[in-house]
Each structure stands twice: as structure tokens, then as C-alpha cells.
Design a protein around this nucleic acid. Sequence first.
DNA 1: GCCGAACAGTTTAGGCTTCAACTATCCGCG
DNA 2: CGCGGATAGTTGAAGCCTAAACTGTTCGGC
Lengths: 175, 175
Amino acid sequence: MTAPPDDLATRGTVDAETPLAHHPAGHKDELRLWLRLLATANLIEGEVRRRLRAAFHTTLPRFDLLAQLHRAGGALTLGEISRRMMVSNGNITGLAARLEAEGLVERRVSEADRRAQWLRLTPKGRREFSRQSAAHEEWIAEIFAGLAEEERAALFRLLARAKQSAQAALAEDTA
Amino acid sequence: MTAPPDDLATRGTVDAETPLAHHPAGHKDELRLWLRLLATANLIEGEVRRRLRAAFHTTLPRFDLLAQLHRAGGALTLGEISRRMMVSNGNITGLAARLEAEGLVERRVSEADRRAQWLRLTPKGRREFSRQSAAHEEWIAEIFAGLAEEERAALFRLLARAKQSAQAALAEDTA
DNA sequence: GCCGAACAGTTTAGGCTTCAACTATCCGCG
DNA sequence: CGCGGATAGTTGAAGCCTAAACTGTTCGGC
């Protein structure tokens, strides 16, 4: 357990010489907020992954992809799916391949644009997703059952604000 | 395996004054809340990953492990790190190996318990983490800059409630 | 003293994810 | 027409992550 406390580089990194900033040492709150947001999301996500695996031998990305097709109500191109899931292109290639191998989705090359491929649920895929989706909704409800409705509403609203704030920072970064 | 479908409405959350916009077992609100929580966390996490890579050629898990060692102020065993980071054991094996190969951490077999290994920052590791940590804190502050202080406080509190609720659901699941 | 349970860490197999380089196709414009 | 830039998707390398099986060590009880 014992180790010499270092104190070489650890102190004096930030708060030593900030020239008249508004909050000289004031970014710790944001950090704690972020760590808690991350921990909460990871906790829930991990549990959902475990249950998807235990109950249906599937994974969250697979479930997500089926959900996108279900929500779209028809076929989507791989590119459109990757945009909606906010993941890379190459990611969808492998994911779609696995789902196709399981017989849950079908692929067809677009006739209008021979670069593109349409993906859609098979009947089996629809059945599977239907079962998974119902269970998933129950799990989520269970996980958030400890919050009162007004707490959930407030959290929902604040998350929108946080997302908005983050997107602003992202845009600024790219600019 | 699935819980009885009731019991949520009986907690006095929904039935008080639902403006009949939903089905009897309408868990859609919780689902939307979860999707937004996940999207927000993923958005920010992705941006942090990109910046860590661009600015320091490193990754979030590496940074996290260094942060754990820094926060502990000394050496930690691999098992203790895996508990604090809430990831699996085998995960830390590889992560620690990569950080050791980069000269950022040092390993030593415990003398008291020859199964265990102590991990601690090297001087180089301390220097690196110090630089990364300062930038990281700035990024997070920037990302949450769009929220007023009272919004951040409210969000912080509600996330604690959500985490608590999720943990209760988890515990019930294992029981 | 010994045995079995618990524990620390490693390994393996499989999956997810990104980035970057690549192929094939499309489309606008000269 | 034909060329060059954009676009759709694939591939490969690298890393992250888990669950499960495994090795070696410790420790409590008999």
C-alpha cells in the first residue's frame, strides 16, 4: 500500500497561474458531472448488454441495428444506418454480415445506385426483434423505476441541454 | 425471468395524473430517457476519445487507468484497478501491459501476496498524465459550458438518483 | 499438516469499434 | 464524351471489452 506520494507533476498544473480567469480552479464540478454521467450510462448499458446476452444471445449493437430497421418501417442503406447509429461505416459492414448470417436481415443491391445496398428485416428478424424489444422496454422501465415521473422529466430536459452544449463545443472544434 | 408487468404504476408515479397520452403499460418515456442518456454520454465520450487521440496519441481507457493511479496517490493492484474502473480483470491485464510497454507505469509483484502485483506511475507516466489531465479538464469544462451552474447541479443530483435506481434494479436481478 | 474454497491474474475466443487505405460507382461539368 | 471529385461500401490493423477456462497462491478449518 505504501508508496511515496509523488507531488512532482501533480500539483500546480492548473490553478497556479491562470491569469484572472473567472473560476481559477473551477472546472472540477464539470469533471465530476461528466464522470457521473459516464458512470451512470455505463452501468445501465452494461446491464442491458448482460441481459440481452443472457435472454437472447445477442448484443446491443445487433439489437440497435434491428431497432433502426424496425423504426424505419422498411429498408435502409448501410450508409443511412451508420449515420443513424452514429457509428463508422466499416462497423456496419461487419454487423450487417453477422445479422445476415443469422437470417435476421436481408441485403439487396440497389438498382438505382449500384454502390448502395438495401437492408431490411426478414420475417424471422421481425419476430426476434419484437420479442427482444418488449423485454428491453421492461428492463428500462425497471431500471428507472426508482425515479418519480417529474424527476425523469427533469432529467430528460437537462440531458437535452447537456447534449446541446456538447454539440456546440463540437461544432466549434471542427470550425 | 422477466418481472411481473405491474408494480411500476403502483409506486404512485404514473397513475396520479397521466394525461392519457400513453397506453396502460406505457414505458415509452423511460425508453426515451434512456436513449437520450445514452446518446449524450456517447456523444461526449466520442469527442473526448477523438481529442485524446489527436492531442496525445492515447485512448480513454489508458487515460482512465493513469487517472486511477494518480488519484490513489500511490500503487494499486491490478484487481483494485479493475474494480475501480468497473471493467473485467482480463481487460486490465492487456491495458497494463501496453502502458508498461510505453514506460508510463511500473509493475512489481507483491511480496506479501505473491499472486498480486502492484502498479504505479513512472516519472514519465506522471508527466504525461499531468499534461493530459489538464487538457481533459479544459475539454470537459468547454463541453458543459452551455449549462448554467444550477443546471449542472440539478443534473448531477438527478444522475445520482438514476444511478441509485439502476443499482437497485441490478441488485434485485442478482438476488 | 492438509485440503478445499476463495482469490489474483492470465489466456483465449469472439465481438465491437475506429481509422485509413482501397475499390467501385456515380455525377457534374467542360 | 470523358475526367475528376464525391460517395457507398469493404478491408485490414490495432485496440478495447467480456465471459469462461485456466494457473498459481493464500488461507481457514479440520
